[in-house]
């Protein structure tokens, strides 16, 4: 079970990010979660939205450079140690985390951790054997 993330290339020039966010606003796209990776040369805007395929084709048609990726989403308790347990389980199984970000859910006391690993199937298998609950796009409907 995965959740789909859109990544958009952001050149390191003034106003580049604003162009993307203006465009998404114009098309009434609500960003449910996001992260921005920044290097000295460029950035990558990563977003979770309700209709990823539709948003992807809107962005592509406008000429933005973007891609869609399956991400692992895990619901965890909003308390110390939750993330540590997940990452530990992955590390013990040699699964490499590229990047991750989290957002709180409507359900009180819980958060969703979204992460990109080098091997989705392996991560899914490992997490299924833990007490954590994998989530798909239904988390966006809450």
């Amino acid at each position: 079970m995965y959740i789909r993330q859109i990544s958009v290339f952001v050149e390191n020039k003034g106003g580049e990010l604003a162009q993307i966010t203006d465009f998404l606003y114009k098309h009434n796209v609500n960003l449910r979660a996001l992260s921005i990776a920044d290097t000295a040369e460029f950035g990558i805007l990563r977003i979770i939205v309700e209709n990823p395929e539709e948003t992807l084709s809107l962005l592509k048609n406008e000429g933005f450079t973007c891609t869609i990726t399956d991400m692992i989403a895990v619901q965890m308790k909003d308390e110390p140690g939750s993330m540590a347990k997940i990452i530990r389980a992955l590390a013990d199984n040699n699964i490499f985390v590229e990047y991750a970000y989290a957002f709180p859910t409507e359900q009180k006391g819980h958060a969703i951790l979204i992460f990109r690993v080098d091997n989705n199937a392996a991560a899914e298998y490992v997490l299924a054997s833990t007490s954590f609950e994998l989530k798909g796009s239904e988390i966006l409907n809450s």
Partner: peptide, 15 residues
């Protein structure tokens, strides 16, 4: 210039 399919969501791949 990258080709569209050469873009990646990870910084590691691009660098």
């Amino acid at each position: 210039e990258m080709l569209p399919e050469q873009f990646s969501d990870t910084v590691r791949v691009i660098t």
